Amino acid sequence: MKYFVVFLFIITSISTVAQTAETPTKISGTIISDNTGSPLANVNIININQVTGTTTDDKGNFELAVTQSDTLHITLLGYESLRVRVTNDWVKNKKTTIQLTQKAISLKEVVVSPYYLTGYLEIDSKLIPIKEDFRYNISGLGQGYEAGQYAPEAFGKVLGSIFNPADLLYNVFSKKTQQLKKLREMRKDDTVRNLLETKYDRETISLLLGVSQDEIGEILGRCSYSEAFIKTANDLQIMDALSSCYEQYKILKKK
């Protein structure tokens, strides 16, 4: 009987510890500049594991629900991005101070290529190059397909992407199923969306999805998004494009 009680106590303890570790708890922190020691406002903190986020107030303070060993991705314009692991001490103490390092910004040479205009609208409108990207919609599919600049083979490229998803997308999507499922969570969190709307470096998307920036371009290219869109869209537009591409792929795969 005594051994049974000891065994029951051990099992209960293990269960309690496991449950505590899995249950999100709120932690807080203050983010400061390592150069001046002053608090930094509007810093974006993204929990990569839970796909949730928050921002610091004017005193550099923030709160966020985490579990132990979650990784936080911390970004602020003009400062080096930082990844911080949530430790057991942080969970116990509930609060910590984090320092961000300011970026050393070097100005690159800018070459301006002027357009020599005549002042006549009809002539000048032909002198300035206009790049157009076409998207095609096919009845029965909610997804638009972008084929880049107009060309005779553009529509054929779109059809190839639609009717041969296994050839074009399987190698990418089949290996990233778990990561791409995060797209739904990313779209729900306003902090994540607001952050991505202001970024163009693909860093946060790459980190959240566990894919490289080259893979992001490959996925969108195989979904017939133009090179211009892939290069110039902000990270929120890229995330929505990835999500649409993945959802469409799942539909086509079932069919």
Rank of each mutant, 00 (worst) to 15 (best):
K2D: 13
Y3T: 12
Y3E: 15
F7Q: 12
F7G: 10
S13E: 11
V17Y: 15
T20C: 10
P24R: 08
T30S: 10
I32E: 11
G37F: 12
L40R: 07
N44A: 13
I48W: 02
T52I: 14
T54S: 08
T54F: 02
D58M: 10
F62P: 02
L64I: 15
L64N: 02
Q68W: 09
L76G: 09
G78P: 04
G78S: 04
V84I: 15
V84Y: 13
N88G: 12
D89P: 08
W90F: 09
K94R: 08
K95Q: 09
T96G: 09
T97V: 15
T97G: 08
K103C: 02
E109V: 07
E109K: 05
Y120A: 01
Y120C: 00
K126H: 00
K131I: 12
S139Q: 01
G148V: 09
Y150G: 04
L159F: 07
G160Y: 05
S161M: 11
I162K: 02
A166V: 14
L169E: 12
F173M: 12
S174K: 14
L180R: 06
E185C: 07
D189H: 00
D190G: 05
T191V: 10
V192Q: 00
R193T: 03
N194F: 05
Y200E: 06
R202Y: 09
Q213Y: 01
I216A: 01
E218Q: 13
Y225E: 06
A233Y: 04
N234I: 00
I251C: 06
K253L: 14
